[in-house]
Structure formats: structure tokens, C-alpha cells
Design a protein around this nucleic acid. Structure first.
Length: 218
DNA sequence: GGCCAGGACACCA
DNA sequence: TGGTGTCATGGC
């Protein structure tokens, strides 16, 4: 079976870190909430917020929808941007109730490309959050890219640093088989690599990464 | 005490 | 269309 560069990197990451078994979350809604809460935020802080929601018995569509915005904001305070994210969570739930009777099954019952457009029309749901919801909550083969992906693959010389989200995502979608397991693990592995390697050398260039990165291919 | 984290959006030229 | 400011807590 021919293997291209992106697949080769995937296999090396998988061998190095093992399956990540994403997304951390017990329910579809918890995954969606996590996708919103983790925007530009460390996952440890998201875990604190989710724990707060669970402790308050508030991790449900109806409960969050019924909370006052400042009450919700207080529960998710550890994630930062708590006022914004409180609005975004409630916007998402409003959309789900309004357009799909509050049913994730209905939300994901259409062609996922159509669902992606719907999600992107929700205020506060950008491309990465939409793709995370599709992939990890909806089990749809929509590849997720993030700042780690751009940083790592531009330093490897595979893409340019200024590449847009859509261009970067298209590059992966064009060069990988559209397999759910592959997309699921690949993004999770990139995040793991991003956390463990690049953060130690945030200014590192291509050569620096090549020395540090265990998956570098010359 | 500064930097960074699994972004998105409003605003402006 | 692209660049910049804003939103904000917590770990290292």
C-alpha cells in the first residue's frame, strides 16, 4: 500500500504516542461543550469548568439553556473568556433546539457538509470548533486543523506559515483517505506533539524542530 | 511576572 | 481579504 508523507507522519506519531482515544467526554453534548470551552484555552481549565457544570448538575441542554448568563459564566469561569463562552454555549443550544428539536441525531442526519455550514452560521462557532463537533461528536470525516497543525507542518516545510485554516484543512483532506479513525487520531496526535515538543521551543525554526521532533522526516 | 493555551469575531483600511 | 484588538483564567 503506498503511503504518502502525511500518512507516514501519522504512523510515526501513532507509534510514538499511541492511540489518544479522543474526544474526552461522556456524552455528545459534553463533547460539543468541550469544543466550545477549549477555544484558545488549556484543556486543564476546560476540565475544571466541566467539573463545575457536573457538580451543579448543569451539563444538559435544558439546564444550560435555563441558566442566567452570569450564572453559567461563573460555572465556566476557569476556561477564561467566560462571558463570551457562556453566550456561545447558549447560542449553540438555541440553534439545536430551534433547528433540530434539540436532537443531535437530527443534527447529524444530513450530509455532514451541510451540517458544517449550519454550524458555521452559529455565532461563536468557527471552523475549528465546527470541525471538532463534526468529527468527535458527530463521527463525520471532517479533518480538524489548529494552531499546532499550522506551526508543526509549516516548520516541517510542508505548508507555508501563513496558510489559511481552509487551505490547511484542504491539504490534509486532499492527501489523506477520508477515514474516521485516521482523522480522529491524527488531530489528537498533532495536539499531543504540539504540547510536548513545540512549546519547549516556541521560537524554533525548521532545523530546531527537526532536532526535537521525533517524527521529522528529512 | 511573562508567556502561552486544542479560537472567534468586530472593526478597519 | 488581511491585519489588529478584544475577550480572561490558570499552569509553568
Amino acid at each position: 500500500m503506498p503511503v504518502n508523507l502525511l500518512q507516514e507522519i501519522f504512523y510515526r506519531l501513532l507509534a510514538n504516542y499511541g492511540p489518544r482515544n479522543w474526544w474526552p467526554g461522556e456524552t455528545t453534548f459534553e463533547i460539543c461543550a468541550g469544543a466550545i470551552l477549549t477555544q484558545n484555552t488549556n484543556w486543564n481549565n476546560v476540565e475544571k469548568a466541566i467539573a463545575n457544570l457536573k457538580k451543579a448538575d448543569a451539563l444538559s441542554l435544558d439546564k444550560i439553556a435555563s441558566l442566567k448568563k452570569d450564572e453559567l459564566a461563573e460555572l465556566i469561569r476557569p476556561t477564561g473568556y467566560y462571558n463570551l463562552k457562556a453566550s456561545r454555549l447558549q447560542e449553540f443550544i438555541f440553534f439545536l433546539k430551534q433547528e433540530h428539536q434539540g436532537s443531535f441525531e437530527r443534527l447529524f442526519s444530513h450530509p455532514w457538509q451541510q451540517t458544517r455550514v449550519e454550524l458555521l452560521n452559529i455565532k461563536g462557532i468557527g471552523p475549528e470548533t465546527a470541525d471538532s463537533i463534526l468529527l468527535y461528536a458527530g463521527n463525520k470525516p471532517s479533518f480538524v486543523v489548529d494552531s499546532y497543525t499550522r506551526r508543526i507542518y509549516s516548520r516541517l516545510g510542508i505548508v507555508t506559515e501563513g496558510i489559511s485554516y481552509d487551505e490547511l484543512r484542504k491539504y490534509f483532506m486532499d492527501h489523506l483517505p477520508h477515514e474516521l479513525y485516521l482523522f480522529n487520531e491524527y488531530h489528537a496526535l498533532i495536539v499531543e506533539l504540539g504540547k510536548q515538543v513545540c512549546r519547549k521551543s516556541p521560537k524554533c525554526s525548521h532545523c530546531c524542530l527537526s532536532a526535537l521532533c521525533p517524527v521529522y522526516i528529512s
